[in-house]
Design a protein around this nucleic acid. Structure first.
Lengths: 187, 187
DNA sequence: ACCAAATATGACACCGAGTGACACAGATAG
DNA sequence: CTATCTGTGTCACTCGGTGTCATATTTGGT
């Protein structure tokens, strides 16, 4: 069950993440040292790294286990569901979760190191998605193309959304992008 | 013109890259320090960084100016050419150049830090490609989707090629991937 | 051939991310 | 009450990367 241990751990994590966001926003990512963040949260640099693997990860709160979660959600879908429809549905759900962290997203897109870390996470997620699709009986190359295309769609959506200044509903954009990028071999 | 300056510079660069590849192959990427590479090439760590921006870049020989080059090649294409066809043609040409560096590719795919660097470069290239497509009159979202899809196709090809142990012709794979991933909105 | 500017290099000091080790506190379970 | 587990601080260390300066070496112009 959820003991006191885990609750305090999550609280400290949230505290660190919050302080990090504040400092990044006011000074910039590169101008903020890990020691700064740790001090602001009342702890040592060493302890920061007991909560986050890297400095970048302080920004990606819940996003970090993305790959694993998405793979599980795909596996939980009706087995005969059409792959692109399946990806669309799962990632559509994910989009709403990301939507909650607008400020983080802007920071990520405007900070090379964070953008890089996002690419890493997406890449790792992609490999898991390929596996999940392969488990549904999809040929490797097709699974690979579909997963990559889905990732590309989400990425393009994020940028388009920033381009339009956030005026368009993101879910609508996701639907449009998935419709536009639907691989021909799935017809 | 091409003076002695540039020629020696290119020679030293090649020497460093060569030594780096050797050491990475025999010890692994993480187990090799920049100082090791520099020493093996008879120079100081400081000078290494005068030839390569990062340790990873020693592996990506000619690949580094990819974004700029690809964008130029797109711009040089007949203006009325259909976008997906245009991307296909340009990246097909690029594929043959990458094909020459098989050993480097294997190393990259099996080394997280290098894989990350590749993602960075592809991402940077993508933004330039989007611009190039936009200059041809393509709407931003469509250009973004097309560029991302093209990148996804190349990436999937690389993995499929490794999956099959290099038995299939890469250009054939590229053609197949581009045919399979052709965005519906371009019809 | 000579000189001045540009360029390449080494040496050194420095920063910051990330890791390993150890010691010590408090909480926990028996 | 004690033995153990977990979180933390401190310290030392590695390594990638940068700024600076001093010193060759090369280049282009006269």
């Amino acid at each position: 069950m959820e003991g006191l241990r885990d609750r305090t751990r999550r609280a400290v994590r949230a505290e660190l993440a919050g302080r990090a966001l504040e400092l990044f926003a006011e000074r910039g990512f590169d101008e903020t040292t890990v020691d700064d963040i740790a001090r602001a949260a009342g702890m040592s640099k060493r302890s920061f790294f007991r909560y986050f693997l890297t400095k970048e990860d302080a920004v990606f709160g819940e996003i970090e286990t993305m790959g694993e979660q998405v793979a599980q959600e795909i596996a939980a879908r009706p087995p005969q569901e059409e792959p692109w429809q399946c990806l669309h549905a799962v990632l559509r759900g994910w989009e709403s979760r990301i939507n909650a962290q607008v400020d983080a997203m802007r920071l990520i897109e405007s900070t090379p190191a964070l953008r890089t870390r996002l690419l890493q996470k997406r890449d790792e997620a992609r490999t898991r998605i390929i596996q999940a699709l392969a488990d549904r009986g999809m040929p490797p190359l097709e699974a690979d193309l579909a997963a990559a295309a889905a990732g590309a769609a989400l990425d393009a959506v994020a940028r388009e959304w920033l381009r339009t200044g956030g005026s368009i509903d993101r879910l609508t954009l996701v639907d449009r992008a998935f419709a536009m990028l639907r691989p021909a071999f799935l017809n």
